[in-house]
Design a protein around this nucleic acid. Structure first.
Lengths: 357, 357
DNA sequence: CCAGCCTGATTAAACGTTTAAGCTAGATAG
DNA sequence: CTATCTAGCTTAAACGTTTAATCAGGCTGG
């Protein structure tokens, strides 16, 4: 009624060669004292038999499973694929598996998700916290992504610098009067981005910030943002805090007969997957996810591996990369152009929105 | 130098109460013969101490880890979030964890990803195969999602029926001449969708299929699809095989001064996250991911749990749901409207046949 | 030549769980 | 009153690994 899990084990190899299991274990892990020739002999036999070490046995003995958990806020977050892919890649590169846990947008589910992971004996957890959530003190190493306000070890994109890069790009194209579009001023990420943008506006320039949620509270869901108005008043560029808002701006502009980038330049944030396939390609700024993931995973791994000896059940915090900030990368595409350019070669584009609002 | 993993174990409970570990194990799992009062006494003690069973110990003994692997083609696939979320939800609902593995779009990486999972001792694997990949015979239960052509147990959205639903909707709105947009005829998914669509075109109607990849091979990457031309020739609706292609069509239409849905109706497929936020909201058709995931996971689970006794190292195929097909759901939004609606058309500009392509 | 040391191996215990098998005592049957 | 059954527990082995402790010799130094 059970399972002698198919593959060969240390015993098999040991028996086959005629030595003890301990020797085989030592040979393969390179730890004890084994003669060179015996080591190679064992190695050969091992992959002749196609030996795969049993994680269960290893885990039981060492207390380490080689698996880390990944807790995501809500998967509907369009950034999610990038994050998951990057984490999985970074983790598997150093031999860790990634257990998924989705907190489904629910704050309570987040701790519940963490518990599920702990019950699966993960060695550590990477958390991308839901906005406004605080990471509680759990009993294993944790790395937090992109919530710089959270205490403890965190790695985040440098949103401030990203904002600076966007505005520097626009300034370089000659733009002086900018409309900045955010959603909610209570988001630290958005605030960082907006802050970075403002910090690079020239003294002879001007920046007006539009907070969408506030506007919608007054004028209703999906209301126009009054962009045409601003253009008429001399604003020449619009910088949104997210690609989604940029897309919304784009439709509003076209509805008003304003073309991008001839009449006005437009930028987004995050480089969502469709940002490059849409025409014209959206100039935006992206997080260096591979790097962020690598830092997070490495920090976690070193915390885990340094954990030996620390038997305290309380949280062990990853030591390195306490608050690493990773620069963002500007992706220049077709929605930005020099101000008042007489005639661009780029195809004029009209994604003209109808109805709604 | 190590790790006596913090929490209490069966031993602790046994010692505390004064019985043997076996009894505790039996009491908690409800298997052996233990008196009722002792059971409750043990139960109480267990959660008084906050007992969490060691997965490692369990796995070692039983050969089952309670973890399934999820292999995804390439995470950049915009459908990915929905899939991952649904699988994770379905799995965790019946106590399974989900180990992530991304094959990064590379066909070779797919089997490599599978191997990574097997080395982590997963009990089974859910695969969303890359287009054109065949699932090799691996040594554990497998459920395949959305590749109906693949032999073995598969659960897939009923793309054919989805196509039918789209066209039925358009027909109901009075449309007769349809342009169908696909990407690559070698994709069985796309073929199913197109096939379903054609099967519902009325005998007094007409459907012309545009294969994007073929067109681009002739006219170059990102070329116009000649939609305005078709509209001029009396086509009143465009149905794309994916939201992405629908979006592309939308931009092309607007560039030609054709408005949606007044001049022409447009539909997509998949209900990608942005499909509802874009204006006008895209009428599309979505997979019932929660249901698909549940079927896949359940099939896998029953294969795993039925595996006891089957000691063959060869693949064990999930028995139930051999080729389950799950209906798709039509999401009617703003890009479809009755044909030739007399009212709110701004003004029927006579379509200047801006001859493209 | 003997005490000690290094080398290369072995033995045995431990991690936490499940489960077949064994044991004890009270109840029942004959 | 003895033989048998059974409910309720215990013993012990097993899963596959790591690792501390031990051991057998060969070598070295004195």
């Amino acid at each position: 009624m059970a399972h002698p899990r198919p593959g060969p084990n240390l015993n098999k190899i040991a028996a086959e060669i005629g030595v003890s299991v301990a020797t085989v274990s030592n040979a393969l892990s390179g730890k004890g004292r084994v003669s060179a020739k015996l080591i190679t002999r064992i190695r050969d036999k091992a992959d002749e038999l196609g030996y795969v070490p049993s994680l269960a046995g290893y885990a039981l003995r060492t207390g380490r499973t080689g698996v880390i958990g990944l807790v995501l806020p809500d998967i509907s977050n369009p950034l999610f694929p990038q994050i998951a892919q990057a984490i999985e890649f970074a983790a598997s590169a150093i031999g860790y598996g990634v257990l998924l846990a989705d907190s489904r947008g629910d704050v309570a589910m987040q701790t519940e998700a963490v518990n599920r992971l702990i019950e699966k004996d993960v060695d550590g957890i990477v958390i991308v916290p839901r906005r406004g959530t605080r990471i509680v003190d759990i009993g294993c190493p944790v790395a937090v992504i992109d919530s710089p306000s959270t205490p403890g070890n965190t790695v985040a994109a440098d949103h401030w610098q990203g904002g600076q890069a966007v505005v520097e790009h626009l300034i370089g194209l000659g733009h002086r009067k900018l409309v900045l579009i955010g959603n909610n001023p209570s988001s630290t990420v958005q605030n960082d981005r907006i802050g970075g943008m403002r910090s690079r506006v020239r003294s002879d320039g001007q920046a007006e910030v539009l907070w969408i949620e506030r506007l919608e509270r007054e004028r209703g869901q999906g209301c126009p943002l009054g962009l045409a108005d601003r253009i008429a008043r001399g604003f020449t560029a619009i910088a949104a805090v997210s690609d989604l808002h940029a897309l919304r701006a784009l439709t509003e502009l076209h509805r008003a007969g304003i073309t991008v980038p001839e009449d006005v330049s437009l930028t987004g944030f995050d480089d969502l997957t469709w940002a490059s396939v849409v025409t014209p390609g959206l100039t935006t700024v992206r997080m260096d996810m591979p790097r962020i993931a690598e830092i997070a995973v490495r920090a976690l791994a070193s915390a885990i591996e340094g954990d030996r000896g620390n038997t305290s059940p309380r949280a062990t915090i990853a030591t390195s990369a306490e608050v690493a900030k990773v620069p963002m990368q500007l992706m220049v595409r077709q929605t930005t152009a020099p101000v008042a350019s007489p005639s661009r070669t780029t195809d004029p584009y009209t994604l003209e929105g109808k109805s709604l609002c």
